[in-house]
């Protein structure tokens, strides 16, 4: 489903060129559960941004569902992001003035779906993440774990192909962190491709496929045995 070939990403910092990604090749199949680990500055967030179409590589090719994405314009990228990709961030990135339900509804509003279509979807996903009784609460009335669950609901309400999570537990205590990971795993079980960027080895080791990055390159890519068939 995702196919990266010779991806380079070079940032210009002052008059120095920083190579954040160095000839990265990566193929992700539908339904996989993988983690990307590595020290800070290893390029894992840059890779995540490129996978999420928020950033464009300096060179290389990125095919999403067989479609080359490095040549299309911003408008189409935005559409693809809205349809195929769900983001979960370390700092939740919920809009403070909107209720949990409204935050979850936002991607559907941007996709111009009719209110009558949107409401049942929001109800359904609220049920799935276990926050039905928190629907009208604003983010500052929710705990960290609840906020991240709202973020996951928002990321998955458009039924994307892949959920990209950038340090999803980085701001949570271990209990709510585990809850959030479990929620993502449940969604993975029902077919959603999940990619978690983390430097917490406990979280990273739960994934079936573990990728290690150092200095902009993938140095290890291990697959748990016996899981290939599921």
């Amino acid at each position: 489903m995702i196919h990266l070939e010779k991806i380079n990403r070079i940032f210009q910092v002052g008059d120095q060129q920083v190579r954040a990604l160095n000839d990265v090749d990566l193929t992700i199949r539908s339904g996989e559960y993988l983690s990307i680990m590595g020290p800070s500055g290893s390029g894992k967030s840059t890779l995540l941004n490129i996978l999420g179409l928020l950033d464009q590589p300096s060179s290389g090719t990125y095919q999403l569902d067989g479609r080359e994405t490095t040549q299309i314009d911003d408008e189409q990228l935005a559409r693809l992001r809205g349809r195929k990709i769900g983001f979960v961030f370390q700092f939740f990135h919920l809009i403070g003035r909107l209720s949990a339900a409204e935050n979850i509804e936002l991607p559907l509003i941007l996709a111009e779906e009719a209110p009558a279509v949107r409401k049942p979807k929001v109800q359904e996903i609220l049920h799935k993440v276990g926050l039905e009784d928190r629907a009208e609460h604003r983010p500052d009335q929710l705990s960290g774990g609840q906020r991240q669950r709202v973020a996951i609901a928002r990321a998955t309400i458009t039924r994307p192909d892949v959920l990209l999570a950038d340090e999803p537990t980085g701001n949570l205590d271990s209990v709510s962190g585990a809850e959030v990971i479990q929620l993502m795993e449940t969604m993975n079980d029902s077919g959603l491709t999940v990619l978690v960027v983390t430097h917490d080895p406990i979280i990273g080791d739960r994934a079936r496929r573990k990728i290690k990055m150092i200095d902009g390159a993938i140095v290890a890519d291990t697959q748990e045995r016996g899981d290939e068939d599921t």
């Binding site: 911003d74 349809r83 809009i95 936002l106």
Partner: peptide
């Protein structure tokens, strides 16, 4: 940050 989020969840410019 809100603008960034909107773009991440599919908002066009």
């Amino acid at each position: 940050a809100e603008v960034g989020l909107l773009k991440a969840i599919g908002a066009r410019s």
